[in-house]
């Protein structure tokens, strides 16, 4: 009976009796969700173009951030280092298409997925080899002063991250919905050969898509790297994006954002109000539980396309 009270009643009593703190938890969850969504967006873009989960997205975040800091450590100001890093990520996208993807046209998705696992290790190794393993501070002038609103503690950095994510999503939606390349993506994802047969330049599409994913990786790397320093563990944030994608839908840009927000709020609320009952530190796996519950009711995710195959 006591246990039931702690699970079913006590958390809600706490929420009701401390509404400001509860609001702070929800806002904190939303902000964390934005950060997850920044990583998830990179996955979603590649998935839209190839139908493949890019396992290397986390490693791309690490590589992009390492490259940016590396340039800055060599004396480049951030306004020059950022475009230089974008150029590097585009060059990498080009190299990936030429060396790997071109040879895997029309291969099963699992082959492409395995390739991205290999790519993840290449990115990590290359990043360490070129830029070293030390933790590097990243400061490109993003404001990060805390401030109070109605008794709630907020941080300028979190606001900046939310605005950045909003701009990024708007740009991506316009790019994917309103441009010819964007429309071509879906055709490529559905069937490589069919897309080629109607004149869609597959190679160009892939270079563009991997470049966009590289750019998103840079944005995510900057935001996460500013929080924790740029270091190897940045590549592990991919695991924070997976439940977001499961929940939001792998091929949906708005899904990445909404999924991120739901996961962010869900895990924070669960950690604070239900975590102590079982010893705490539940947020990492709770995100996956939440995603799996959604999966049972909507296998394609909240915003994913329902795939109907007829015999």
């Amino acid at each position: 009976m006591d246990a039931l009270y702690h699970v079913l009643i006590s958390p809600f009593v706490d929420m009701a009796t401390q509404p400001v703190f509860f609001a702070e938890v929800v806002i904190g969850g939303l902000m964390a969700g934005v950060m997850y969504a920044l990583v998830a967006l990179g996955f979603a873009v590649i998935f839209k173009a190839s139908g493949v989960v890019n396992f290397a997205q986390g490693a791309m975040v690490l590589f992009a951030a390492l490259t940016l800091v590396g340039f800055m450590e060599h004396g480049l100001p951030s306004w020059a280092a950022i475009p230089m890093t974008i150029v590097v990520m585009i060059a990498l996208a080009y190299a990936i298409e030429r060396v790997i993807l071109r040879h895997l046209v029309n291969q099963p998705h699992i082959v492409l997925f395995m390739t991205t696992i290999g790519l993840a290790f290449v990115f990590e190794g290359l990043g360490e080899l070129i830029w070293g393993s030390n933790v590097k501070a990243l400061d490109i002038g993003i404001p990060d002063q805390p401030f109070f609103v109605g008794g709630m503690l907020l941080n300028q950095f979190e606001i900046f991250a939310a605005v950045t994510a909003a701009i990024l999503v708007t740009l991506l939606v316009i790019f994917l919905q309103k441009t010819a390349i964007g429309r071509a993506l879906r055709a490529v994802a559905d069937d490589h050969q069919a897309a080629q047969s109607v004149g869609i330049p597959l190679q160009t599409i892939w270079v563009v898509v991997w470049s966009v994913a590289g750019f998103i990786a840079l944005v995510a790397g900057v935001m996460w790297g500013a929080q924790s320093g740029v270091q190897f563990s940045l590549s592990l944030i991919a695991f924070k994006a997976l439940p977001v994608l499961i929940l939001g839908g792998f091929n949906s840009i708005p899904g990445a954002i909404v999924g991120g927000l739901i996961i962010g709020v869900g895990e924070k609320v669960a950690e604070i109000y239900w975590g102590p009952i079982i010893g705490g530190a539940i947020e990492n796996w709770f995100a996956y539980v939440l995603a799996m519950v959604f999966l049972m009711f909507r296998p394609q995710g909240l915003f994913g396309e329902k795939i109907i195959e007829r015999v």
């Binding site: 924070k240 604070i272 975590g275 705490g280 990492n284």
Partner: peptide
Amino acid sequence: TTYPVDHPGQEQSATWLQIRR
């Protein structure tokens, strides 16, 4: 009072909300 943080600890905002409280 103990505050566990799951590996690797890249995201700790929930823990620090509790500490702030």
